[in-house]
Amino acid sequence: MIVAERKPMAEIVEMVKDCKKVLVLACRGCVTVCSAGGEREADIIASLIRLGAKKEGKKIETITASLVRQCDREYIDEIDQWKGKYDAVVSTACGVGVNFISNLRKDTMVYPALNTTFFGGSAEQGEWTEQCAGCGDCVLHLTGGLCPVARCAKSLMNGPCGGSVDGRCEIHKDVECIWQSIHDRLASFDRSAQMEVIAPIRDWSTAGHGGPRKIVRDDLTV
């Protein structure tokens, strides 16, 4: 899922300082699962916006609502039911949702309530960790299913580097050296020889270094 966290409230309150009515729009997708932008968090953000405005001697009214997802046209259409009832949308979706509303509703100002952080999973209750960087040319079949792009601090394709000590990364002792783990995991499948294979210089154009990415599936377009 896409993992995100709430922006500092002062930043959000500053965004909406000239508004009288704000639609705080939750997303029931990824950000609900990572407890950053679901209905419960949207209610909290709405309350804090009202309080933040009160503190400045102003009044902001809020409507709180949610969409199934904010990354699909069909769900964005639902926003129209609140048309004319708000000056701006504060979206608690990831950045995709904010962009989608901006793309599709030319006359609607949308502000992000979250900092969209990474693609990850819930390691433990209340803890999420980055697992994939969406590089567009997956190498997991070569690395024992562990991602060197997202999980190696240097995104090395031929690791580990000389800073790896006792399975820990040199950037911090709390950080696993994923290349050590790749090595151990390959060894457990009797595939250590894979570590000797030099990965060629990568073409990072698939990772966004070639500009915004797009997938068109002819089989799905009519």
Binding site: A10, V13, L48
Partner: peptide, 12 residues
């Protein structure tokens, strides 16, 4: 604690 942090973020 969450409320405390939010208050601080709002300068309260």
């Amino acid at each position: 604690e969450a409320v405390r942090e939010a208050l601080v973020e709002l300068g309260v």
